[in-house]
Design a protein around this nucleic acid. Sequence first.
DNA 1: GTTTTTGCAAACCATTTGCAGTTAG
DNA 2: CTAACTGCAAATGGTTTGCAAAAAC
Lengths: 141, 141
Amino acid sequence: MKEKEILREHIARHKMKQTRQREIILETFIKIGGHVSAEELYHKVIKRDPSVGLATVYRTLTLLCQSGIAQQQEFGEGKTRFEVVQDYKHHDHLICTKCGKIIEFENCDIEQQQEQVAKTHRFTIYSHKLEIYGLCRECKK
Amino acid sequence: MKEKEILREHIARHKMKQTRQREIILETFIKIGGHVSAEELYHKVIKRDPSVGLATVYRTLTLLCQSGIAQQQEFGEGKTRFEVVQDYKHHDHLICTKCGKIIEFENCDIEQQQEQVAKTHRFTIYSHKLEIYGLCRECKK
DNA sequence: GTTTTTGCAAACCATTTGCAGTTAG
DNA sequence: CTAACTGCAAATGGTTTGCAAAAAC
């Protein structure tokens, strides 16, 4: 798992310490894959190790974002969700406002257009977030 | 101001009441134009009428969203911002992660591509949000 | 051994809510 | 009049923080 390596490196570079909790949280986070809130991740984590605290999950999530493994997302629910960053292929989201389903998609043309926009504004893109809200196939009926 | 008319209609349709506070808050909100947090709007409002409460600002902002005049935005600061909806031309945002500047832009090609994506997923679009993060021209130097 | 990390509980801060008084229709 | 609205203060809920004990190096 390359994420483990990335974290290890980040930890070493910042004279931090490798801990059991961080390892468990990272593994659980990767296994879930996407769109987890801190609370949800916490509940999964304590199934493996009930002694881990919620604060540690928050702190580790922050760490994962700093090291580039995770990324924050806000879908307007009043809480932050976190997602695994997959740098080899970025994806965006179709979000059903009725059932809450989240569909991922990729579209290179959109990314290219973004580059175009950035160029005209002399803006250097680091990342982006595209969310499309509406009704999914089932909820449309 | 067409927003006043929209609100009036929405209020009538839901047997709500036209109040001084709602009028002041709407006017102030429109004047500011974009990317205001509830707290910021509140501070502007109490300059005109110190008796207005923060809770009323929140409640009115909710009302403005329901009537389609305003729209929520979250830029990951831990608080919600609100923006005036301009249905004739939708715009998206370039957000500088260094100085916090927000640049608006429009791009029809991106919108068209989104329609394309939605079609392949049989998804019905109501709205969307595109945020591009990076460095603005000044901060790049 | 020293320094970072942890769990816990308390603190924080944006937002919401209950309520008694006020106001619009 | 009566139902909706308001301001206030208290409650809420996600997230952060201070601290003493525990673990990593």
